[in-house]
Amino acid sequence: MTHIIIQGLLLSGLYALIAVGFTMIFSVGRVLNLAYGVYIMLGGYIYFQCVQVWHLPKAVGFVMAVAAGVAFAVATYQLLVRRLENNPVAVEISTLILAVVMQALIVMIYGAASRTMWPLVNGVWRIEGVAVTYNILIATVASWFILGGLMWFVHKTHLGRAIMAVSMDRKGAMVSGIDPRRISLITWAISGGLGAIAGVFFATYTQLDPSMWVGPLIIAVAVVVIGGIGSIVGSLIVAHLIGFMETITTSLLAAELRGVFTMLLIIIVLIVTPKGLFGREEL
């Protein structure tokens, strides 16, 4: 039981961080950014390149990873999404294609084989007989801090309120002096940064792999569908729901069934409550 609670909490913190950037873009622009997993992949590989290939300090690797995530997200918005913004289906198809192209690029540079990332911090902490690596503990605590900071930013700053305003009523935001396109760009940049941070943590938790963008993307989509549009708190709760569900499934049933219940939950929520559990609009 202790094992489930600890592992569930650790995994959920990471899932929440993975999902929140995706949720923000969906809330503000009403588009599914299927290239979101690329920020996670880029974060992991750039950190790997800096720390394990160039032997730069970990902090430098971290900053470079975040910068790459932000730059890629901004470029995606400016060069692709902005030109297709009245056509959500075109955005979704083109971002999915972009993700596949980026995967091919990663295979060209690093090869198709998986690579192991060094932990951010070495060591193990034993709680009630459960071994918790400092690495995942730090990743989870950092996730919570980042998510807490994000909540503060969204609710207590002018820019954060502007992001919420655009997500709730675009015309209302415009007549308040807010430029929705600028807000969208900023949201994509934040999303890219959060995705890259999640990518560094995720890669140290699992491993680097050219297809590592798929799993987190499915988690992010699940959180948006199950949680619903417009509620960051809802997203965090659902991330924990999925995290615990996967931990329980892995511990008590079989690791192979890990994602199955998440998928089933998506279908049930779509049928029973299309707004999602905490959503404010129909998906």
């Binding site: 002018h158 309120r161 305003a165 009523d169 209302g172 935001a173 007549v175 308040s176 002096g177 417009g230």
Partner: peptide, 23 residues
């Protein structure tokens, strides 16, 4: 002040007003 208000329905009154103070 548009016809339907175009308010931010899930924000409180003060937060709606503070959005107006953006510029």
């Amino acid at each position: 002040a548009p016809e339907r208000g175009n308010l931010f329905p899930f924000m409180g009154v003060k937060d709606n007003l503070l959005v107006g103070a953006y510029t």
